[in-house]
Design a protein around this nucleic acid. Structure first.
Lengths: 154, 154
DNA sequence: CTTCATGTAATTTATTTTGTTACGTGAAAT
DNA sequence: ATTTCACGTAACAAAATAAATTACATGAAG
């Protein structure tokens, strides 16, 4: 079972956008993320629709942040990506006729819902601003010499 | 992202086994679960190795429970299945060179670990005996007329 | 009016999961 | 004994998913 890393990837992109004032093209982002520009556009489309970023065509175009980092949480981004399943395990059948399976589903659901609620709450506790601050703290801790952008130069 | 339903399926099987004293063949279980006997054997192999069930060859052979339902939790079964990923989302990279990605991973990890720990704890709170009792309660609530096995007759 | 860059649908390719076949081992029935 | 039954496993095939790519359209800057 492969885990969905879209949230991780999008956060990565957003924080990089926060570091530069000029728009970043899908091609540049794709190079940094090791993927294809069209994939970037696909995943960013959701964020644009929710107003977290904006895009511009033509010369000097690309992606820019369009939100206050302090007002957006990781949960917001998760929702903007379409609220993909947080849990990796689930039911065999959604509404089974078998009583045994109903009991199994009920027991698992209780556990699943609690875990999911906790995870959403934790994601809701972290703002993009906090994440960005953590980035800069790490930059200082590491010596402060290199730009945040340098890590994807190669 | 498709969710793994092995835990759900195996619990279903175990509770059915709890209802009958004669062994159940892989073929019978496969019919009930809508899959192939070899798939049943594959998934049950882990449980057998951990001693939760035992299997017998030849006439009258098949699968039987080999554990005290009151002493085994859903968490134990999850572990016996190889502890598949509980979460549906994860990192892009495990040990990134990029500071931004390190910060993203750190933030997500905190949330992930807490949710995972809660889920494991909840699974650890439910014994197979409790699940089985819930099955019987549902059977009574529904009228008590039909056998637990009837649900898979068709 | 050409170049650049996004928007999106359609297609192809790769990966993962699931199902199937085939053959081996051992136990019970005849 | 030998046939039948059922598990054990590896190898193979098929199906479902996800990702990458292509293709073409739109619109903005030079």
């Amino acid at each position: 079972m492969k885990r969905d890393s879209r949230l991780s990837g999008v956060l990565h992109i957003l924080l990089h956008l926060a570091e530069q004032r000029e728009p970043a093209t899908s091609e540049a982002l794709a190079r940094a993320m090791g993927t294809h520009p069209v994939v970037i556009r696909r995943v960013m489309a959701g964020l644009r629709n929710q107003g977290y970023v904006c895009s511009a065509k033509g010369h000097g175009g690309g992606w820019r942040l369009a939100c206050d980092l302090a007002a957006v949480t990781l949960r917001d981004i998760h929702v903007a990506l379409g609220s993909p399943a947080l849990l990796g395990i689930g039911h065999r059948t959604e509404s089974p006729g078998c009583l045994v399976e109903q009991a199994v589903n009920a027991a698992l659901d209780r556990a699943f819902e609690d875990a999911q609620a906790l995870l959403l709450a934790r994601l809701g506790d972290v703002t993009l601003a906090a994440l960005s601050a953590d980035c800069h703290a790490r930059l200082v801790a590491r010596g402060g010499a290199c730009s945040l952008e340098a890590s994807h130069a190669a």
